[in-house]
Design a protein around this nucleic acid. Structure first.
Lengths: 370, 370
DNA sequence: GCTTTTTTTGCATGCGTATGCAATTTTCTT
DNA sequence: AAGAAAATTGCATACGCATGCAAAAAAAGC
């Protein structure tokens, strides 16, 4: 169990260190021959300290390995510089990216991230109790919503709430989303222009605003061309469910020749099923379009046409929204919708109208749609 | 920018709430007609409180929306119940999974996760400064190591350090890894048994212990069969670098007919290049084997033979190791190596010896190897 | 050099909680 | 019912730091 893989035993439980005593400002003060206040000020940008004193303090701090205690500080300042991030699951391929960019953005502004995830099945309310105990300065929810009561509580506690990739009707929560509705519409136009005739939609989380808007946009776009009846199934953001949904559609009497799947994560699974279980050629037999434009969409094996979820600008917007509210210490409800674009690849038949190249990605956006 | 996508303006900056005053134990105490100590005890499991009193307190707390302040608590107890998790990047497909399981495991034990990520290029030392200010009870590093000085500092501060998927020579850090060496060896045996003759290895992060061990195992396994010279290139865990590495190998005069790629993340990219850029059939023209067994390895498009990184047991081990040290408040160096197995799929030619089925996955593990 | 202004410093306090200790109440014994 | 034992409670304090205020020191003005 704890031997090197070649059999030699490794040192175990060597010199057990049991310090558990962190250096305090008081100790640094004594060493530097100043008061504790001076130490505090030396570590507070813009505080009133003589340069010489600051030097002495920093030197002593370095020698002792002192680091200010963020907990104690937050007790006084009433600011933890921690943002609670709730992300129920990380399956969707965009979330690692979101997390990275979010962490970088917050870090840059001197904030840390307390992450709550890994409770896909359970409700997020118990998690909420935990978050609030740490007196987070803000709350960011991705692919989750908060019950109305809890939103109220946050507002009452002065904790701004920003939803990422989800809308909410709550009057005191902000949100950042992509233009789901427009995306859905544009995909409808694109598929119609491509000469398809039997359409289907595979839903993500049926109750989420994100899914609702994508679906609504898609249906609306089709309706403009007189298409009202389309195939429908729910993938529920789960691979197993998605595969089952795809099987149902492809096995039908009149299988679709154009499928819009509510997220790339699911779209890739649908493509696998189409090709390997039904022997369908993509896009000759069936066109598949996704949403999110995850990294794998661009791999030759998939070459998935997909509407871009503009992660970087969305994260920027979310961080900005959060900072604004924290700094003004007032809860304002703002809803930002970040535009995306259709990245045209090989998984859907092309319309006659030309696509154009933009930064190496093929875009389809006819004038009348803009 | 902040209008509904149908053009109707949304309510913006509605009733700005500016509470910023969290309820304290003192207030709850007054309301319940008890002392502040009683409130504290009511929220401390196992404390000495009469059931009736506890009820009164909890009722008052509920009415006021009181939640204990974790910061203040940590100041007294000298325990933050926060684990610092440093994960330089999340590209590797296993990390979302690791993160989810880790969060769940820590949560269950009443710990939270302060996540540091999104600094692939930069060094992790500045991050370290931040982590330590929050007086984390433990530090978990995935795909990163700590300079020796910083490891010393952690030990001195009584903060246990657990490395995940990386080994370290530092006498006061623990680690949890898969059996990289054995994995590499077994892959070598498998490929030799499959009748291949020109081998190549594509490295991940060349300096990491993980890569070193996988490569060493692979080379050792080949050497047992008298094979000393093999192709080599570095993918550096980056897709672009990996593709370049693959191109170099496949374009060589004597291209390999068996490639072991240091991680699935890269192996998938190698497969893409082989198929779509060189028109190679997998496994007829070239066998490709990866390491990690990520979800996508099992997709029909790839069907990647891969050595399993046993994420769940590894996370369990890491959490256990962490808790052990926190609870005993002594730093012990333990190194856990969790066994994996070769998941045999279609990307590599099969040896004559049979593979066997285990829980739906094909395993190849001849008796002499066990 | 002396006063006025400005800068720097230390003192004292409080943030919200946990906990040892002594006082108080309750329960148990006989 | 009275005394002993046990359970409960409140008081006071400390955790590590930031900050208002007044004292001290330094700089500036004359």
């Amino acid at each position: 169990m704890s031997a090197g893989e070649d059999g030699t035993p490794r040192r175990e439980g060597g010199p057990a260190a049991t310090a558990r005593h962190a250096v305090t400002a008081e100790e640094v003060a004594r060493r530097a021959g100043v008061s504790q206040s001076a130490v505090s000020r030396a570590f507070t940008p813009g505080a009133s300290v003589a340069p010489k004193t600051r030097e002495k303090v920093l030197a002593a701090a370095r020698e002792l390995g002192y680091r200010p205690n963020a907990m104690a500080r937050s007790l006084i300042t009433n600011r933890s510089r921690i943002i609670g991030v709730v992300m129920a699951y990380l399956d969707n391929l965009i979330y690692p990216d979101v997390l990275e960019k979010l962490a970088a953005g917050l870090q840059q502004r001197g904030y840390q991230m307390l992450l709550f995830t890994g409770f896909k099945d359970r409700h997020s309310d118990p998690v909420f109790e935990q978050v609030m105990q740490y007196r987070v300065d803000g709350l960011l929810l991705a692919s989750t919503t908060l019950s109305s009561d809890l939103s109220d509580e946050c507002a009452a506690a002065g904790v701004p709430v920003v939803m990422f990739n989800r809308m909410t009707e709550h009057p005191l929560c902000s949100s950042v989303t992509s233009d789901n509705c427009k995306g859905g519409r544009q995909i409808a136009e694109f598929l119609v222009a491509g000469g398809h005739c039997r359409f289907a939609y595979i839903a993500g989380a049926a109750i989420s605003s994100t899914n609702r808007d994508r679906e609504a946009g898609f249906r609306e776009g089709l309706l403009r061309h007189g298409i009202a009846r389309i195939g429908y199934a729910e993938g529920n953001l789960e691979l197993a469910d998605t595969r089952a949904a795809a099987r149902g559609l492809f096995a039908a009497d009149e299988p679709p020749d154009a499928v819009f799947v509510g997220s790339d994560h699911m779209a890739l699974a649908v493509m696998e099923v189409a090709r390997h279980e039904f022997g369908l050629r993509v896009p000759e037999d069936v066109s598949i379009v996704g949403y999110d434009d995850v990294g794998a969409a661009d791999w030759p094996s998939f070459s998935l046409t997909s509407f871009t979820l503009p992660v970087a600008p969305m994260v920027d917007a979310a961080v900005e929204l959060m900072m604004e509210q924290i700094e003004s210490s007032s809860i304002l409800s703002h809803h930002r919708v970040v535009p995306g674009r259709l990245a045209v690849r090989g998984s859907a038949r092309l319309p006659g109208e030309p696509v154009r190249d933009q930064d190496g990605t093929l875009i389809w956006a006819p004038a009348r749609m803009e």
